[in-house]
Structures are given as structure tokens and as C-alpha cells.
Design a protein around this nucleic acid. Structure first.
Length: 580
RNA sequence: GCGCCGGUAGCUCAGCUGGAUAGAGCAUCAGGCUUCGAACCUGAGGGUCGGGGGUUCGAAUCCCUCCCGGCGUACCA
């Protein structure tokens, strides 16, 4: 698999060194990079090192390529043939039995196939979602949830010790307004207040002053208008009765809202198979005096100054474009100070790598946090951000309008109810994070399931099980890793399939390195795109046939594909059904 | 204005550290599959990779510049 690639690349390196030595060139050689060519006619691997050396050796790339091919001692019988092509590519075809080794490797590794120890058990924290408990999770949160979870899965698969963390703030203005919103609905429910008319809500200045039908309107400016607020109010009446009219909004009302909403958020996450290891409350930073400590440390480092009655972080001294207020003139810290303290806490917990997954609207402060962390003596390079753009939903060729203020946004719950957790996850992770995500609702909820890429992949997996069931009915079973004759798999589509299966570990490695799970989704689509046609064309090559030896070999191939599909689906957090 | 992210087929998007004829799904058109492993399969059309310059053996990919779109640019979180 990737071993094959590594070995081949080492062989080429040796040849390269020998070549340079003979040319009297003692400088270090350029790295040997092997790629899988797009064109089938260009070999299993292709190398461009000859072209890179042309200038240095003052020889034509093709000539160098020829020398390298001649030098390529093949002690292990790995190379089938190698030739120079085009402007100077060295194309290598592996000996066929090398590819067949791949198959054995997959069967032996099973669910571990593609796993790596690159992480070496080091600790990594992935922080994502981190939505404050003010309402149900929106599609944007949903994307972040799936993205973060898949990154965590990739890291876990690559040998990291992963902690998933959710950071939240249940204090502050936002939450006070939430409590007031609940109280208003509570009073409305008791007939002690009137609901604000829509027009008043559009013009929030009015909401406080005008009575409706002789009753006061208690709905706050910028209040939360979703129906879930009424649900919280009703629940509060049920649990604690109708005598809370004189309670402050920040008391029982806020507490109830927080509890109910958080429970709902957790249920939502649970429904898409996402679970956190830690929930970190911003308040604990205040309680523990950590904000003052951070401020003092930064002041000692000369990165804090006072001006205009406020306290400033001298970020310009670190190359950033402006300084920032960390404590307002009224003595309240701005949001960035707890954020810095939070990240200090992450470092102190000993994570080797810290990954923040954040929406595009929230990334502006990241450079400041990163710089501040450096001031506090930590290595900023261990702190990464994965940014993602927003989600739009398209249905019937039209974008569905979403507005949080007006509570017309689509929630994760609604979407999951319509399309199911698997399709939801696949669609959310399929696109690269930096781009906008257009969620095609019509395609996602297509009940015929024909065109839906999520089902296409799952179906391939289910099919492999179907074949095994079929084989069992005919008395054939999947052979163990060394009990089949892999050389019987000589059809071009079989070799191509095996080759694709062999790419999986490298693909996973790359996707992990760049924290981009969408590569896995595309890989799976490609793989299913090879698998489904192969199985489809049952007239040319039935897996289960009279030829017991051939049947065994093909069953091994089917099982290998099944393993890779299952492992890939796991990485995306999708189920791998045995039948559909 | 400045910053970040996008601009690739009619639509939605891939394209690994620059590589050889730019790929996939959907949609469209033409066929196959008369349920066996068929929720599938085969084929076709469709592109000046936003425009222009540059770097080099070679650029969708790197640099510069301009245009378009999203987000951000608070002593709000």
C-alpha cells in the first residue's frame, strides 16, 4: 500500500544518489516525489525528479531519466517495468503480484486498514460547535459539528489521542435577553402580558412601550422569537407553577432556558452521532481568577497598556494591524480576554496540538488569540484554526431564506428529520470547508435514493454483503488472507479496483494532515464508482461461479472493498449498512 | 478603504507540495437492465479553469494587478 510507495521511492532515491555521485555532485538530492498519474497509460506511479535535475546536471531530462531507470536496481522484484515518457517523467509499473499483496494486507488489517501511528499517541484537542445555549443548532452549527467530528475521527484514525471539546458562555447580555424572552412568554401565557405584534418586533424600539389590548408588552428588544422559547415557558409553568411573575428574568427563567436548550442541543448532536468529551464553561475562567492572571502576565511582558480609560493589548507590536481593548472603561473584560485565558488553559492541559474549528464570521479574533498565546510563553504553531464558510439551502432551484433574528432559520433537527443523519452528515462534509456549502435539499431527500451520493456509497457497501450472502447460499465463503490465488484477478477493472483500495492509507494521511475530511467523501464516491459498475456487469465476470478458485479470489476482492468502504464510512460518521 | 475565503462544464463541486489529453455528481440526449448482486450500468454533448500580465522545460495550481460574490473590520459575543 503506502508501503509500496515508500519502498519504491526509497529505491529511486538510492538510484538518484548513485547517479549524483558518479556525476561528482555532492549536494543533497531533491526529494523524490511519486504521484499516481491521472492517465492510466502513465504507469502506477510517476516521478518528475529527472526534470528537476535537468538544469543542475546540464543534461536533458530524458537523458537523466534513462540513466535513473538503468540505475534502478530492483532487488525486491517490485518493479514490473519503468520507462521515460513525455518531457522526462519516469513512469513505473509495479509487478502485478505487488498489487495483489495490497489485497492481502487489507484482509489482514480489516477495520484497522488505513489506520496509522503518525499521531504517536500525542494529545490533540478539537474544539467545535461551541454554540451558546440560546436556541437550537442552525445549519451552520451543523456543518461545523460534522466537520469537527470528522477531523477528530481522522486524527483518531491516525493515532492521535483526541479530545472533543465544546466551549460555551451562559452568562452575559445574550443570556440575559434570553431570560427576558422566556419571562415575556411566560407572562403572555398567564395572560399578564400581550404578545408583541410582528410590526413591533420588526421595530424593536416599540416593543417595550406600547400596550396591546390593555396589556403590557414585555417582549425585549432583540428578543429570541423562536417557538422554542414558548416551549420553555410552558415547561416552566408545568415544573414550577404560575407564581414566578415577580422573579427576575435572570433567575428561574434563564436557568430553565439554559437547561432545556442545552438538553436539546445535546439531543441534536446525539442524533447525528456526535459526542463531546468536555464541556467548558467560560464562567469557570472568571471564578478561577484566570482572567486577572492572564492580564498580569501580559502586562509583565509589556504587551498591555492603558488608554482612554480602557486596557489595551499591544497587538501592533506583534505585527497585527491594530491594538485591541481587553478591559473596557467600565471594568468589564471584552470577549477576547476570556478567550485568551481559555486558550492558555488548553495549553496548560498539555495538548500537543490545539485545533479550533470556527465559522467565517468568528475568525477575525484568531490572530490576536494566537499572538497573545505567544506572549504567554506558549508555542503559537501548535494552535491551528480550521475555518468554514456558511451553509445555504437550495430547494426547487431557490435559496431558502434564513434569518436568526426572525427565527426563520432551518435547524439541524429539521434537516435531519427530512433527510436522515447519514445523508445530513455526508452532505455537510462533502465540500471543502473554506467554500460555501450549498445544501441541495431536493437531492438530499430524494426518496428514490438513486442519485444521492451518500446512498451510492452505502449501497456499494451493502452490495458487497449481498454478494457474500449469495456466495454463502452457494456454499462459498470469503477466504482468509493467504488462502486464495490473487493472480486470478487479472481483469483491468479488477486491477484498477485493487489499486484504488491501495490508495486509501495515503488518502487518509493527506486528509488528516490538511484537516480536510471532504477528501474522504470524494474518495468514497470514486471507489463506489469503480465498485458498483464492476458488480453490475455480472455477465462478464460473476463473482460466484463454477470456478471455485476464481470465486475465492473475487470474494477476497469484494471483502477488501467492503473493508475500505466501511472504514471510510466510519471516518465520515456514516453507518455502513449490510443491506438497503 | 483594509483583511480573510471563494470565482473550474447549464447547476453543485473535486483537482494532493506546479506536471503529460482539466475530472465527478446532477441536469440533458441516446441506449441497456423484463429483477439475479439492477436504489444499477453503457455512451454522447458540454470548458479561452473570472480578465490581464509575470515566474519556467511546464501554471487551474506560485507572484503581481484588476473585476465579481460572501464574511469580517466595536470599549457586541
Amino acid at each position: 500500500m503506502s508501503d509500496v510507495r515508500h519502498k519504491l521511492s526509497e529505491q529511486l532515491e538510492r538510484a538518484l544518489l548513485a547517479l549524483l555521485e558518479r556525476a561528482g555532485d555532492a549536494d543533497p538530492p531533491p526529494p523524490v516525489e511519486l504521484e499516481v498519474p491521472r492517465q492510466k497509460g502513465h504507469g502506477d506511479f510517476s516521478c518528475n525528479v529527472a526534470m528537476q535535475l535537468a538544469k543542475r546536471l546540464r543534461k536533458s531530462p530524458r537523458e537523466i531519466g534513462q540513466d535513473l531507470v538503468a540505475e534502478l536496481a530492483d532487488g525486491e522484484g517490485m518493479v514490473g517495468r519503468a520507462e521515460v515518457a513525455g518531457p522526462g517523467f519516469i513512469n513505473v509499473w509495479l509487478a502485478e503480484d505487488r498489487w495483489l499483496d495490497v489485497l492481502r494486507g487489507i484482509l489482514e488489517a480489516g477495520a484497522r486498514y488505513g489506520r496509522a501511528d503518525a499521531g504517536k499517541g500525542r494529545a490533540v484537542q478539537v474544539e467545535f460547535v461551541s454554540a451558546n445555549p440560546t436556541g437550537p443548532l442552525s445549519t451552520g452549527h451543523g456543518r461545523q459539528a460534522v466537520l469537527g467530528d470528522c477531523i477528530a475521527r481522522l486524527l483518531d484514525f491516525s493515532g492521535w489521542n483526541v479530545t472533543r471539546e465544546y466551549y460555551f458562555n451562559d452568562g452575559g447580555r445574550q443570556m440575559r435577553v434570553l431570560g427576558e424572552s422566556v419571562k415575556a412568554r411566560y407572562l403572555e401565557s398567564l395572560g399578564l402580558a400581550a404578545p408583541a405584534p410582528e410590526t413591533a418586533l420588526e421595530d424593536p424600539e416599540k416593543a417595550w412601550v406600547e400596550a396591546v389590548d390593555g396589556k403590557p408588552v414585555r417582549f425585549p428588544k432583540d428578543g429570541y422569537r423562536g417557538d422554542y422559547i414558548r416551549d420553555v415557558a410552558e415547561k416552566l409553568r408545568g415544573d414550577q407553577g404560575d407564581d414566578l411573575a415577580d422573579e427576575p428574568a435572570t433567575g428561574a427563567f434563564l436557568a430553565a432556558a439554559k437547561d432545556v436548550i442545552f438538553a436539546e442541543i445535546r439531543a441534536t448532536l446525539d442524533s447525528i452521532d456526535i459526542r463531546f468529551d468536555e464541556y467548558f464553561n467560560e464562567k469557570s475562567l472568571y471564578d478561577g481568577g484566570q482572567l486577572d492572571e492572564v492580564l498580569a502576565q501580559m502586562r509583565d511582558a509589556g504587551m498591555i497598556y492603558d488608554a482612554e480609560g480602557a486596557v489595551w493589548f499591544k497587538a501592533t507590536a506583534l505585527g497585527l494591524d491594530r491594538d485591541r481593548v481587553v478591559v473596557r472603561s467600565n471594568g468589564e473584560p471584552t470577549y477576547i480576554l476570556p478567550d485568551i485565558a481559555y486558550h492558555r488553559d488548553k495549553y496548560r492541559r498539555g495538548f500537543d496540538t490545539i485545533i479550533d474549528v470556527q465559522g467565517a464570521d468568528h475568525v477575525e479574533q484568531f490572530p490576536f488569540v494566537r499572538a497573545a498565546v505567544g506572549v504567554l510563553g506558549f508555542d503559537p504553531d501548535r494552535l491551528e484554526i480550521v475555518m468554514h464558510q456558511f451553509v445555504t439551502i437550495t430547494s426547487g432551484g431557490e435559496k431558502v431564506k434564513q434569518s436568526t433574528r426572525r427565527a426563520t432559520f432551518v435547524t439541524v433537527d429539521e434537516l435531519v428529520e427530512e433527510v436522515g443523519a447519514d445523508v445530513f452528515r455526508f452532505f455537510m462534509v462533502e465540500r471543502k470547508a473554506e467554500g460555501h456549502l450549498d445544501f441541495d435539499l431536493d437531492l438530499a431527500k430524494d426518496r428514490n435514493w438513486r442519485k444521492n451520493p451518500a446512498y451510492y456509497v452505502q449501497y456499494a457497501h451493502a452490495r458487497s454483503h449481498g454478494i457474500e450472502r449469495k456466495a454463502a447460499g452457494a456454499g462459498a465463503s470469503v477466504p482468509s488472507a493467504d488462502a486464495f490465488d490473487a493472480s486470478r484477478l487479472d481483469l483491468p477493472e479488477e486491477i484498477e479496483l485493487i489499486r484504488k483500495l491501495g490508495e486509501f492509507p495515503g488518502l487518509v494521511e493527506r486528509a488528516t494532515d490538511v484537516r480536510a475530511p471532504h477528501h474522504v467523501a470524494y474518495y468514497l464516491r470514486d471507489l463506489a464508482g469503480l465498485f458498483n459498475p464492476y458488480v453490475q456487469d455480472g455477465k462478464r465476470h460473476r463473482v460466484v461461479s463454477e470456478d471455485a478458485e476464481l470465486t475465492a479470489a473475487r470474494l477476497a476482492l469484494m471483502r477488501a472493498a467492503q473493508i475500505v468502504l466501511a472504514n471510510g464510512l466510519w471516518l465520515l460518521g456514516l453507518s455502513a449498512p449490510e443491506q438497503m
